[in-house]
Design a protein around this nucleic acid. Structure first.
Lengths: 220, 220
DNA sequence: GCTGCAATTAACTACCTAGTGAGTTAACCC
DNA sequence: GGGTTAACTCACTAGGTAGTTAATTGCAGC
C-alpha cells in the first residue's frame, strides 16, 4: 500500500522556463488584481497553469517578490505605451484633449492594472518603493504634457498656472475614479460609469473639464 | 495539573454591551482599512480591545457581516455630514466651489473611509449591494448639486450640459484620487499630493477645474 | 549514449485562521 | 438573596497557507 512512486505517471509539464515564468506572471497578475495581495493564493496561481507552488518560489522567491514582479511588469507595459504618444503635431488644446483621451482609453482597457494600483496604495506603495525597476523612472507622459503646456502658454491659450505633474494628476483622477470606483458608485447612485453607451459622454466631459480648467478665467 | 478553573482570575472585562460593540466596530474599521478585508484578522481586532474573538461572532455573526457593518457605519457618517450642507445661500458659482471644497476637506479628513471604499471596490461592492441600510439611499449632496446646477443654468452662468450625479463624480474623482493614490503617485512622480503646504493649491485647483468646466466654452 | 544541470514534481512542516461548543459570571429584577 | 439571562471566557476544531526539503526527470552539449 501507499507506494512511494505513483503507479501511473501523467505526462507532466513540458520544460520551458520562459513560458512557465511568463504564465505565472500573467495568472498572478489576474489573481492579485481580483483578490488583493493577501487574498491571492499561491496554490491557486500554480493550479491555474497546471504547475506547482514550488515553481513560483523557484522563479520568484516569495509571494511578496511575485507581487512586486507583477507590479513591475504592469508598469513596464504602460511606460511602453506612453512612449508611443504622438500628439505634439496638434495645436496645444487639441493635443491635451487627445492625450487625456488616450489616458481615458488606457484606463478603460486595463481594469486589472487599476485594481493593482488600488491594492498597492492600500499597502502604501511599499513594493513600488522597494523596487528598483519602477522607482523614480519618470513617465514619458509628463515630458509630453510639459511641452504642450509651455507651447499653450506661449500662444496665450492656456491661462492656468499648473505644472505637468499636477495636470497629469487631474487627468488621471477622472479616468482612474471612473474605473476603480465604478462598483460602489454604481451601487450608491444607480449609475454605471463604464456603460458603453455613456463612454463618449465621459470622454468628452474629461476633455471639456481639462480644457475648461486650462483656458478658464482664474480671477473668479 | 491542568485545572479546569484558572488558578488566578484576572478582573475580566466590565459588562457593557453597547461599549463592546462600539469598540469592535471602531477597531474593525481601522484594521479593515489598514489590511484589507482578507488581510484583517479577527483575532487581532479582538486582542486590540482586550476581548475575545468569540464576542465578535456574538455581536456580528461573521467576518463578512462585520465588514458590512463597518461599511454601513462609515457611510452613515458621511450621510450625516452631507445633511448639514449649507451652501445654497451663495450664488451658484460660489456654492459649487464651496461644495467642492467641503468634499475635498471631508476626503482629506477621512483617509480610512477612502481606503474602505477602495477595498470595497476590489470586492466589486458586494457588501454594499447586499446591505439594506446603504443600498439605494440617495445622497443629500446630489440633491443640493442638482438645485445649484438648475439655478446656475437659469442665471446663464453655467453652460455645461451635465447632471448632478456626473458632476458629483467629477468632484469626487479629484478628491478621492489625491488621497487614495498618494502613495503610488508620490513614489512615481516624487510629489506628495497631500503635503500640507500644497493643500491650498489643490483646493483651489479643484474649484477652478469644476468652474472652468461648468462655465467653459463647450464648442471647442 | 552519457553526463551535468536546469526544470519539475511530490510530500511535508509549522503555523495561522475563521468559526464553535459549552460552560461561567456579573448585573438586574423581584 | 435567589433566579434569570445577557455578556463574557476558554479551549478547541478543521481546514487553509506560505514556504521548504529533497528527489527526479528531461534536455543540451559533448
Amino acid at each position: 500500500m501507499t507506494a512511494v512512486h505513483p503507479p501511473a505517471r501523467t505526462a507532466g509539464r513540458q520544460r520551458d522556463a520562459a513560458r512557465t515564468r511568463a504564465e505565472i506572471l500573467k495568472v498572478a497578475t489576474e489573481e492579485f488584481a481580483r483578490q488583493g495581495y493577501t487574498g491571492a493564493r499561491v496554490d491557486e496561481i500554480a493550479a491555474r497553469i497546471h504547475t506547482t507552488k514550488r515553481m513560483i518560489y523557484y522563479y520568484f522567491g516569495s509571494k511578496e517578490q511575485l507581487f512586486t514582479a507583477v507590479l513591475e511588469h504592469a508598469y513596464a507595459g504602460i511606460r511602453q505605451q506612453e512612449q508611443q504618444l504622438d500628439v505634439e503635431h496638434l495645436d496645444p488644446a487639441a493635443a491635451i484633449r487627445r492625450l487625456a483621451e488616450l489616458t481615458f482609453d488606457h484606463h478603460e482597457a486595463h481594469p486589472d492594472f487599476i485594481r493593482l494600483v488600488s491594492i498597492e496604495n492600500i499597502h502604501e506603495a511599499e513594493h513600488i518603493t522597494a523596487s528598483e525597476s519602477i522607482g523614480r523612472l519618470n513617465s514619458p507622459a509628463i515630458e509630453v504634457i510639459g511641452r504642450i503646456l509651455d507651447e499653450g502658454r506661449a500662444q496665450g491659450v492656456f491661462t492656468a498656472d499648473v505644472d505637468a505633474v499636477d495636470l497629469h494628476a487631474m487627468i488621471s483622477s477622472f479616468c482612474f475614479f471612473r474605473v476603480a470606483n465604478r462598483h460602489t458608485f454604481g451601487a450608491l447612485f444607480a449609475r454605471d460609469l463604464t456603460a458603453a453607451d455613456r463612454r463618449e459622454h465621459y470622454r468628452t466631459m474629461l476633455g471639456d473639464m481639462v480644457l475648461g480648467y486650462l483656458t478658464g478665467d482664474h480671477s473668479r
